[in-house]
Design a protein around this nucleic acid. Structure first.
Lengths: 372, 372
DNA sequence: CTTCTGCGGTAAACTGTTTTAACTAAGTTC
DNA sequence: GAACTTAGTTAAAACAGTTTACCGCAGAAG
């Protein structure tokens, strides 16, 4: 098979209606810019310029042409526009392990921000899952080579995903949402994880907690790393030295968050609070605490991170750090579109620094005064 | 503005590299099918046929051409393929109120099924949110008129969304996932809601529950309607006559599910079980029960519906009906692609009935024997 | 020894836009 | 009144593929 043969080669068709140049009445031929031009008594160039609101066209002419277009119910064919123009006006959202990503409110919230903003700019968004074989067959570059998209947004990757460097190498417009890749020259938009983590630690310590466990995700994710650093420094600053074994990897999921909590409570029964670096792990951890016979927040306090909607409806409701995920998606999308345009000289180059979006602590029922 | 002027008209560009017919060496001109043809010493038609695995081409010729393509790193431009071919190979997923839909595991699970399957068929998926103004400006039809997509999947709509009829009227390929529209000639794939509801009712009654409350979504959604019917019949069959006030609208959300539970418990304190027609409402209801001083499952049993992942990590874990949502999305996607092809004569017309996917009850900790 | 058939391949038309370079007619300037 | 702008419009060439109708050439049939 050639590099891009269709997975299921379609049967040779035979009904393409009359490609012949017989000018006769093809029954329901979709009307095009040429026909509009003819009816309006102008050239196709003029019609095109009217469509694109080119200021060269007189308002009078524009009105006339628009009249014809409206009457005919004409809509420009987007495919042809893309082929002839510079832009596809299509953005790709690249996710790892699609299945879990899409069913996860964290990703969903970001993606909805992306789609909303894209829509406002007249762009469409496609979803791509970067499974290993996707990368192996260079599909992430094909996205550009075959002109599928003008740019991509990456969400949920870590520094093991070296293929992300390919985009920078080829100067393909890419931006990471809520992921940072130091030294990879990958543009990004990120929430203030450090600030959020600081707030969590301050709050827990104000409640009198000293023996604070950490359930974290993989440190290959830079934001996780940042939070771990904050945790460690704050513990050190508080003079707590024996905290080494109080950190457990919860691998971002409820399942492992639950296991992590059980393990932590078994090995260090005197821990009075758990800081979980995402809400899913926090929810799993709460489950694990209850399963281990602890009551929340009586015996142990649990704090999450992300602020996903249903954290407000767990029992007890989850104290967490609210991330502006929707906004992060939107901001990233806008930044990407700007970059695409400026790379083509359609917009002045503006290299403003990658923004960090503010976060805030939401106090709910899963936290209380330290009892020990 | 014309019907489709860009929201932000781009500055007139001036760097389109050498559109002139000067054959001289344009530095980094992307290589096309013509160049491949020249290098392989065949016609463009032949190259095209190789790309599309047309059996007319000898294996020998094909190999030669493929060699040249590989060497040149050539990938066919998808935009051009779409323009001249019949298909866009792009599918649209239409959602109401995007923000909540995408952050909802129910939708996420379905969409991931769609995307996975689409990928397998070499199709891409775009996300569209059918906000009121989207419909008003006929954007749902523009999707086809402007050749954005070959077909659309609709998820999460109800019988108030009359615009869905437009697709059928114009014979535009559309399919609804987990929604049924009797009389609208909308093809669909749906899970066995009736069967699931039957299992819930049977199970609760086996546990000795008689005073069973129902927290339901809007009956404008046919699947909700089906479950309400099952509930009512089973209550009647069990000789429970005073159950009229035991049904409350939870509007599909945690928030209103919580309110509904509180209200129900206030008005009918002797209810011993709650059947919630989706997991989000069930989670909200559990929250409401606890807030009303009830313990689960000691005082009251709660059952959900959908089987979203984190139902396993609530406290207590939620008994629910598992829906094959991923599969539903995949099946719908495949059905849609088949329809698109057969409408173009590329596939024999096969009008097999809309499938109903099996569901099953998952027993967890939120249900127990009736105590009153 | 012609005529027919089928295979493998090709030239040219076609998809529906955008953009460039040229042109026209009116308005300035000298 | 000739030369110079300038604003509005246009013809034609791109964009990068697919599809059709036809063509040359074997081998088979008459």
């Amino acid at each position: 098979m050639g590099p891009t043969a269709s997975p299921t080669p379609l049967k040779t068709p035979q009904d393409r209606k009359s490609r012949s140049s017989v000018k006769a009445s093809s029954p329901a031929k979709r009307i095009g810019i040429r026909e509009i031009a003819k009816r309006a008594n102008v050239s196709v160039a003029t019609v095109s310029m009217v469509i694109n609101a080119n200021p060269k066209i007189t308002e009078a002419t524009a009105r006339k042409v628009r009249g014809v277009m409206d009457e005919a119910g004409y809509r420009p064919n987007r495919i042809a526009q893309s082929l002839s123009g510079k832009y596809t006006r299509m953005l790709g959202v690249l996710l790892p392990t699609l299945r879990h990503a899409l069913a996860d409110p964290y990703f969903g919230e970001i993606i909805s921000g992306v789609v909303d903003k894209a829509d406002r700019f007249g762009h469409k968004v496609t979803i791509e899952s970067a499974k290993p074989d996707f990368i192996k067959s260079r599909k992430h570059l094909e996205l550009f080579e075959r002109r599928f998209v003008d740019g991509v947004l990456c969400i949920g990757f870590n520094d093991q995903h070296v293929f992300l460097k390919d985009f920078a190498k080829q100067k393909l417009p890419m931006i990471a949402v809520n992921n940072v890749f130091p030294g990879w020259s990958v543009d990004h938009v990120v929430c203030d994880y450090a600030g959020g983590a600081e707030q969590v630690m301050t709050y827990l310590m104000q409640l009198g907690h000293r023996k604070i466990g950490l359930i974290h995700g993989s440190p290959t994710v830079q934001t996780t790393h940042v939070m771990m650093d904050v945790y460690e420094r704050r513990m050190r600053d508080a003079g707590i030295t024996n905290a080494e074994g109080w950190k457990v990897d919860g691998r971002f999921t409820e399942e492992h968050g639950c296991e992590a909590a059980k393990q932590l409570l078994a090995e260090h029964p005197d821990v009075t609070a758990l800081f979980c670096t995402n809400d899913k792990m926090a929810i799993g951890a709460m489950h694990g605490c209850v399963a281990s016979g602890r009551s929340i927040p009586g015996d142990i306090s649990v704090v999450g991170f992300d602020g996903i909607a249903h954290g407000a409806y767990t029992n007890p409701a989850l104290t967490t750090v609210q991330l502006p995920l929707h906004e992060a998606g939107g901001t990233a999308c806008e930044r990407l579109i700007n970059r695409i345009r400026s790379q083509n000289g359609d917009l002045p180059q503006t290299t403003d620094a990658s923004p960090t979006l503010p976060t805030h602590l939401v106090l709910r029922g899963s936290t209380g005064l330290a009892t020990r």
